[in-house]
Amino acid sequence: MHDLMGPFGDVLQRQLELASQNYARLKAKGVRAINVMGAIGSGKTELILRLAEKLRERGLRVGAIAGDVAGDDDYQRFRAAGLPALQINTGDQCHLDAHQVGHALENFPLGQVDVLFIENVGNLVCPADFPLGTDADLVVISVTEGDDMVRKHPKIFAQTDVVAINKVDLAAFVGVDPERIAADYRRVNPHGRVVFTAAKSGRGVEELLAALGF
């Protein structure tokens, strides 16, 4: 028996390289990109649509890439709102990765947008391990998921600097205290920013844009 030591290549290093290529491609076209993560049904698509409305009022051009295991429902919603959009079907993969996003960027009319939202697959575990090459990451939690979402998925929150606690207008109906979610998040991420939103009514959307650096 003998041991051969030495680096044989880090498989996630490759993802980081692809993410840097995506970032460079976006910067070359002057596009700011946001990776939007969150559980299924947390309101990611609706929130993106509201953010897009506000950004367009400011004269910025907005596009979106929808990532889903199957179907094009989110893509259709983006198109109906007049956004240049593209659908990625991951074919059962539970997250987007930099390779898939790279191909999407090749086919996306980047020259037509200033801001690009990339909506990840609904999942609070895997997307945290796969950087896409975006400028900012956002995790959306809805109060209807319960007030224990941060405690159940601490790693993604420890690594994400902006969190929207969405559907706060429903908090009383489901007996959830949004402040409890925010307090858990601040413990795992002392530098993060929390914004309370209700996408349907537009509450908190301006504050969320500010937290994302707009």
Binding site: D3, F8, G9, D10, V11, L12, A158, P190, H191
Partner: peptide
């Protein structure tokens, strides 16, 4: 849960290690 904040001064930090997945040796 690893906290990405400086244990000494509380500022935001960069991750040096902890996202690795690499083969480093064979027997």
């Amino acid at each position: 849960v690893p906290i990405l904040s400086c244990p000494r001064c509380g500022s935001p930090v960069e991750v040096l290690e902890g996202r690795d997945l690499a083969i480093v040796g064979l027997t």
